[in-house]
Amino acid sequence: MMSASTEAHEKGSPDFVVAHHFDSADTQFDAGRLGIWLFLVTEVLFFGGLFCAFFIYRNWYFDSFVEAHHHLDKQMGALNTVFLITSSLTMALAVRAAQRTKRSETVNMLFVTFLLAGCFLVVKYFEYTHKIHDGLLPGAMFSAQGFATQHAGVFFAIYFVMTGIHGLHVVIGMGLILWILIRAHRGDFSSRYYAPVEGVGLYWHLVDLIWIYLFPLLYLVG
């Protein structure tokens, strides 16, 4: 194993050794990727429960949902969609840069991704404060006046829980991006080893993917 490590240094790329229980670098890569995909499956089902609740209550309280969704800001939602889509692109480009051992390009792309994620949260913050100010809150806390239908509180319960958990994923994603950004800056990654960048990338694309559904369902069709 030690010899493999020195050999890696001789080739001029960062020290990476295949973990002792894998038979080749390819196996280790594939194992990591399969692991991430399985993790993404759990994420889909985790959010899935909320989508299930959304469809059921939309079915039951259709009028409330239509009325309540007019209180969400389409422009802000669309802006956030653009932020996330763009961050997905820069994330994909970061992985591509890491695959070609372009250190500064990787760092830059990750930095842009990080900033876009931050923008998303800022917009979200303004949306939330606006809702809280208007009393458009879940369940027992709902205090907005002038609603023609009874069950707007259910809509806002689903809105806050779904976007809240999604927002939490964005925050976690920013932490992960920061982590690989530091590692990329340190020069840990190369075409021989970029698994963490790819893994965080897949996670980030999933966060985008969830939003791709959240945006039309909550903001556009209610």
Binding site: V18, D26, A92, Q99, S191, Y194
Partner: peptide
């Protein structure tokens, strides 16, 4: 320790076209 891992690098235009598709679809859905 097997041969080195060789990444499969997707060409840049594919990423840009993907991004363009996403933006166009966002506009359509809004």
């Amino acid at each position: 320790h097997g041969p080195d891992h060789v990444p499969h690098v997707t060409p840049l235009p594919i990423y840009l076209k993907t991004f363009a598709t996403l933006v166009v679809l966002t506009v359509i859905t809004v």
